[in-house]
Simulated scan of single mutants.
Amino acid sequence: MVFLTHPEVVIDPAVPVPEWHLAPEGIAKLRRFAASGGMAGVGTVWASTECKAIETAGILAAAKGLGVRVREDLGENDRSATGYLPPPEFQRMADAFFARPEESVRGWERAVDAQARIVAAVRAVMADSPDTGDILVAAHGGVGALLRGHLLGAPISRALDQPSAGCWFAVALPEWRLLTPEWRALA
């Protein structure tokens, strides 16, 4: 399985975050990834219900002539209580989200709950995917960090977060073993 996070988006404070679209540079990264053979072996593509994840999955699936399946529980941690936050404030909130995983910081979904949800969602994706090749999940960095922590048997930590938007890691299935020790950036 490949777990891939959406790349750069068009940030618009007037639009709800789940409705943000990919930015041109993010689209270009995805096209390069698909052309580089990054989709070799992929037979099923999944996405969260957020626009940016569906667009990510759509670009990659189209490169293989595949459709996209969606699941709401593949979504990013629920931050609707605060909505858009300017970058410095968002970074402070993300730090608090990871530092206090059993608390709801300013109404955000608790990290422990988001981790349980993303692990269950990926297990459901595995069970619901035909045996036609590798699975690609297009989702989000925060829940990706939580999934990595689970796979590593490590405590929830921002240190496991992606270094930038548009990264991926591979997981051996059914063993649930990370094949890529670190996040890999889309080129």
Rank of each mutant, 00 (worst) to 15 (best):
A116K: 13
P13G: 02
A165I: 05
L147R: 06
I118A: 03
E102L: 06
I54A: 02
P13A: 01
W168V: 03
T5N: 03
N77H: 07
E109P: 01
P101I: 02
A116S: 12
L85Q: 12
E76Y: 04
A28I: 01
V2M: 11
P88M: 11
F33G: 04
V143P: 01
H6Y: 11
G26E: 11
V2S: 03
V143L: 05
A14R: 06
F169L: 14
L151N: 09
G133N: 13
M93G: 02
S80Y: 01
A114M: 07
S157T: 09
L146N: 07
F169A: 06
G153Y: 03
D78F: 01
S157I: 04
D12M: 01
A114C: 04
P18D: 01
W183C: 13
A124Q: 07
L22T: 05
C51T: 15
G133D: 13
W20F: 04
I11D: 04
L173K: 01
E102Q: 11
V45T: 10
M93V: 00
T49S: 11
M1P: 15
R117T: 01
E102I: 00
V68R: 02
L74F: 08
A94I: 12
L152G: 10
V137K: 03
F33H: 07
R32Q: 10
L146H: 10
A47I: 05
E25C: 12
E50K: 05
S157Q: 05
L60D: 02
P88E: 05
A61H: 12
E19P: 00
G142C: 12
V70A: 13
L147W: 08
A57Y: 08
